[in-house]
């Protein structure tokens, strides 16, 4: 078993570390925190230029073709710098959901935009009452016009949900609270009618939001994966972001 990084991974690590060493001093971080988004748009562009925003995506989607080790190297550097940008929310959480559950069409529509720094996302799964119970989903999705869906409910502590362009929202199409079966994931335009966001900082300054969904209409094309079968995806998304 080989725990050493490859030459390519070492180069990646060194370039991320250097980027953050040059641009993420404590005073600089304070300035980013004071920007309207609560993070630095300029840094986000630099991450895109360096290829960090496409690290885990396939090359056909403008990605780097890497995996968990590559995103780990980036996240370690972001952690050291207490970086404020929505990397975890966009690339790791939402990116994993899209890779695992998104159709070819959905992936090719979105992943290149993420990789090029043109779109940010947030994973809107947790709910106020759920604590760590991943299947405790009360938000509902009911059949809507033209094979679409109508979402109602509330999502809590959505990391970087305050200014993401799109949300990946979990909602129940069948089953009771705590039932793993019946949970679906939907792509939702964060500015769609019926989406209300209240933003606040978390303890370290990173932004998050409480998001309410009131009769939010999405199309059939916005459903990720088979209806009601998304719970294993939710578990793997959370695993992808958990330090254990």
């Amino acid at each position: 078993m080989d725990f050493d990084l490859t030459e390519e991974q070492r180069l990646l690590r060194d370039s991320v570390d250097r980027l953050l060493a040059d641009h993420y001093g404590f005073a600089q971080r304070r300035a980013y925190l004071a920007e309207p988004e609560g993070h630095s748009k300029a840094m986000w562009e630099r991450y895109a230029e360096l290829g960090l925003l496409g690290l885990p995506f396939a090359e056909e989607y403008s990605g780097f073709g890497g995996g968990a080790i590559e995103t780990m190297l980036a996240m370690e550097a972001f952690g050291r710098a207490l970086a404020l940008e929505p990397y975890l929310a966009t690339v790791v959480l939402s990116g994993t959901a899209l890779r695992l559950a998104g159709s070819e069409a959905q992936q090719s529509a979105i992943l290149p935009q993420i990789a090029e720094g043109r779109m940010t996302l947030a994973f809107a799964h947790g709910e106020r009452q759920a604590r760590y119970d991943l299947s405790d989903v009360l938000t509902t999705a009911k059949a809507g016009p033209q094979r679409g869906w109508v979402l109602d409910g509330a999502k809590s502590v959505v990391v970087h949900g305050d200014n993401a362009d799109r949300l990946i929202v979990s909602a129940r199409i069948s089953g009771e609270r705590d039932d793993p079966d019946g949970v679906s994931l939907f792509l939702v335009d964060a500015n769609a009618n019926g989406v209300a966001r209240r933003s606040y900082p978390m303890r370290d300054g990173t932004r998050a939001a409480e998001i309410s969904l009131s009769a939010v209409e999405v199309t059939a094309d916005d459903l990720l994966g088979a209806p009601g079968k998304a719970f294993p995806v939710v578990e793997r998304v959370v695993e992808a972001a958990s330090p254990r």
Partner: peptide, 12 residues
Amino acid sequence: GGPLAMPDWAQE
């Protein structure tokens, strides 16, 4: 508190 312990919403 779990996830609800992350926000600094009192300030807000």
